[in-house]
Nucleic acid binder design. Structure first.
Lengths: 178, 178
DNA sequence: GGCTAAACGTAATGTTATAACCTATCAACC
DNA sequence: GGTTGATAGGTTATAACATTACGTTTAGCC
């Protein structure tokens, strides 16, 4: 068995596509969320914590009803609002993001700071990688500036093939297990 | 009554937010679509044509069921697949786009050529302006290139306030009637 | 005419999301 | 110690969005 990989990815790939010690990755994200909640007087209640854990299980998006099914199996509520309320808390506070293209949710890969996220979604393996975006520097941001449009929220999602799915046999192409 | 405005907007605002002769705008879009269909052996059937007309009525997004209701009132089909099939035809061939953020559809503002669209969505008046985007030059495109991710489709949507809704009394701020 | 492919009509169902109302908990305050 | 207000959770019902499946019609072609 190989030694545990560091949480910070050795390659320059974004977290979703890079091989890494995911158990540590999950733990770290959960700890950061707990710390942020403690600071900000936000309540990381059992349901909210569990939903975040479920989202953290993989760098892939999960539907609200998938999450609900997991909760339900564990006796934590069986009706849609339970899942939607927890997901709203997590997305409102930046612990998770909604992927509009998929009507689904992912844990945030950079929960340290507020940011406008962009996503790369692999249509084959379903992995989602998050890239921080500066709206002002995006193509759409430039259009908005010219137009006088005030951007409040951005949705930036690209769908396609991740390195591993594109070149299944290329060892250079990352190592996320697809 | 003022003379008709030219279809090409006098200001540098994108179509959705700029004052313009919308009747001419609609006619032109419909004519272009008809021409493209004739060239490409695509059938612009009555239902498809009517759905495009409905979408062209305003530079705002309409839900599939809004469209269906209109069709239904005119005796052109009353079940969801009627609307969804027509919308799929229009979006597949670039005559319309889907706005993921709104689960809704807009007529394309630049149907001459294939393009990756970006959108500015005003949360107050609902107007949607389309900006052509070059994915390769977008922030997400640069991330993808570094990552080795192959982009096949992009979703680029900004939600916020259009010039008119932000500065309701400023005559400089376009003139789209909100 | 008979064939095929594309489009359409319709019923049923699947998937995603929210409204509305009530209860539980807990801390602040008098 | 009881009242109050804020926040979270439980539950029912329903709204909103989308697709599957299957049969019929239409248009073009041999």
């Amino acid at each position: 068995m190989p030694p545990a990989l560091p949480v910070d990815t050795p390659s320059d790939l974004p977290l979703g596509f890079a091989e890494h010690d995911h158990a540590a990755c999950r733990r770290a994200a959960l700890d950061r969320a707990a710390a942020r909640c403690a600071e900000g007087r936000l309540q990381l209640t059992p349901v909210r914590r569990r939903v975040l854990e479920i989202l953290l299980e993989a760098h892939a998006a999960q539907g609200a009803y998938d999450v609900l099914e997991r909760l339900s199996a564990e006796g934590m509520g069986s009706q849609p609002p339970v899942a939607y309320r927890a997901l709203k808390f997590l997305t409102d506070h930046g612990f998770a993001h909604r992927i509009e293209r998929l009507n689904a949710y992912v844990a945030c890969a950079h929960p340290e700071a507020a940011h406008d996220p962009g996503f790369m979604i692999c249509r084959t393996c379903g992995l989602v990688a998050e890239a921080p975006i500066e709206p002002a520097r995006s193509a759409l941001g430039r259009s908005a500036a010219e137009t006088g449009f005030t951007i409040e929220k951005t949705v930036m999602e690209a769908e396609g093939l991740c390195p591993s799915c594109r070149d299944p046999h290329d060892p250079e192409a990352a190592g996320a297990p697809c």
